[in-house]
């Protein structure tokens, strides 16, 4: 009898876990399907750009590698109003006469004009710490890419959820 009871308990436990797994999995999958219906999802990895962004990056930097680092792109994770989204770009790279950041590019992947802004700097600026406010059409990746006078290219990325389309 004891054997029998034990095996029933273990059977129930296994069955219970399996059921929980199925229900849990189903609940997790549902929001993903809803999202997929409302708008096509972005590529999850910002280093795989869409066609338009790939063309812009090719024009700006050619075949030079775009590495992540030395830049910090500070943006809200959720932007309620896509017409006014604050952007702060900072960098720890030196700004001396010999070595400085000569350009900063802001690219918003799914905006009508994806290459949103280009900043051209000189050593007198002293540091890269630039803030402004931009418009965003929809939830996507924002790229801040900077170029040094020696030709190095550094980047940082931010995923921003946009509630209200700011581009019409």
């Amino acid at each position: 009898m004891t054997d029998n009871r034990f095996s029933r308990r273990s059977f129930l436990r296994t069955w219970g876990l399996a059921t929980a797994g199925i229900i849990g999995g189903g609940a997790l999958a549902a929001p993903g399907q809803l999202l997929a219906l409302s708008e096509p999802l972005d590529p999850g990895d910002p280093e795989v750009p869409n066609e338009e962004v790939a063309r812009i990056l090719k024009n700006l930097f050619g075949d030079r590698p775009i590495r992540k680092g030395h830049v910090s792109l500070d943006m809200p994770a959720v932007a309620e109003d896509g017409r006014v989204v604050p952007v702060i770009v900072e960098s720890d790279l030196p700004m001396t006469a010999k070595q400085y950041v000569k350009g900063v590019h802001l690219i918003v992947d799914f905006n009508p004009d994806a290459h949103l802004a280009a900043y051209h700097l000189t050593p007198t600026v002293g540091s890269v710490s630039i803030s402004t406010r931009i418009k965003m059409k929809r939830s996507t990746w924002v790229r801040a890419i900077l170029e040094t006078n020696t030709g190095e290219v550094w980047a940082d990325y931010a995923r921003v959820l946009v509630s209200l389309n700011g581009c019409g």
Binding site: D113, A117, Y119, H120, L121, T124, V125, C167
Partner: peptide
């Protein structure tokens, strides 16, 4: 001395 130049598009907020 020109120290910085910022090129914008209409993607900058009003």
């Amino acid at each position: 001395q020109e120290v910085a130049r910022f090129e914008w598009t209409s993607g900058i907020s009003r």
